[in-house]
């Protein structure tokens, strides 16, 4: 379980997050929606300790996110895989190296055969062929890079998956494939997901819970069905936007 309690964060005296509190239980697929700049990504990065809160606490399982304890932070980062908005692949090494980096760095697998098998398995999971393994990230398209970055996150088999705007820059077919992937992971493998997105269509299709952020606070927290019938202006705007795009 991820528990966020009274989280506050500001940058340069500008309050981004104010008194955010919610919990995510195992098996949920939570979509966090909100306009750009509302602090959705900051919220995700707070969970894994990449950004530190001004006040409030976050616990992942029984472990508190605390920058002063690097070993525990490392464990949290292993349990919570974060897929970045940009692929964030390391330019200087191959796709294969990128995917197995975490495995090696954490010493999870030592045998080369096991590592290779794991890399191929995750690559297949994100729908890529083994051809890309020896290529450099810069040789791949943005969408492929993004899939590689998801495979890299999946390689360490995290309990929680955090997606930061996963469908940005992807074509509709790839988006549908990704949504299916998130759903499969949640349903079949029992992975808990938190997805930060603008994409209301994905949220309604895949999510089991939707949290809507506005002006640093939570304005809606409920099931997709409740979201559809919500009277909150922002929720309605989002759905209108969805209707417009559709």
């Amino acid at each position: 379980m991820i528990n966020i309690n009274k989280l506050c964060k500001s940058f340069d005296n500008r309050k981004i997050l104010e008194n955010i509190s919610f919990s995510v239980v195992k098996g949920e697929c939570v979509f966090i929606l909100g306009k750009s700049g509302v602090g959705k990504s900051v919220l995700l990065k707070n969970i894994v300790g990449l950004v530190l809160p001004d006040s409030g606490t976050i616990t992942v399982g029984e472990i508190k996110v605390d920058a002063q304890r690097p070993e525990e932070l490392s464990l949290i980062r292993q349990r919570c895989g974060l897929v970045f908005q940009f692929p964030a692949l390391l330019d200087s090494v191959t796709v294969f190296e990128n995917i197995c980096f975490g495995l090696r760095a954490r010493g999870l697998l030592t045998s080369q055969v096991e590592i290779a098998a794991r890399v191929k398995e995750k690559l297949k999971l994100v729908g890529l062929s083994e051809v890309v393994l020896d290529q450099m990230p810069t040789e791949l398209s943005f969408g492929t890079q993004k899939r590689v970055s998801i495979a890299r996150t999946l390689a360490v088999e995290p309990e929680y998956l955090l997606f930061d705007e996963p469908t940005t820059g992807m074509d509709p077919i790839a988006t549908a494939g990704l949504n299916q992937l998130i759903k499969n992971l949640t349903v079949k493998l029992g992975v808990t997901s938190i997805v930060v997105s603008h994409d209301i269509k994905s949220a309604l299709a895949v999510g089991t819970r939707i949290i809507l952020l506005e002006d640093g606070g939570i304005v809606f927290d409920g099931k997709p069905g409740e979201f559809k019938s919500s009277s909150i202006t922002l929720a309605q705007e989002f759905q209108m936007g969805f209707g417009y795009h559709a």
């Binding site: 894994v48 980062r77 974060l82 970045f84 940009f86 964030a88 975490g102 760095a105 954490r106 996150t153």
Partner: peptide, 13 residues
């Protein structure tokens, strides 16, 4: 900017 530094941290590097 491209979050590669954060990615490294996430990989425990």
């Amino acid at each position: 900017i491209s979050e590669q530094l954060d990615a490294l941290k996430m990989l425990s590097i």
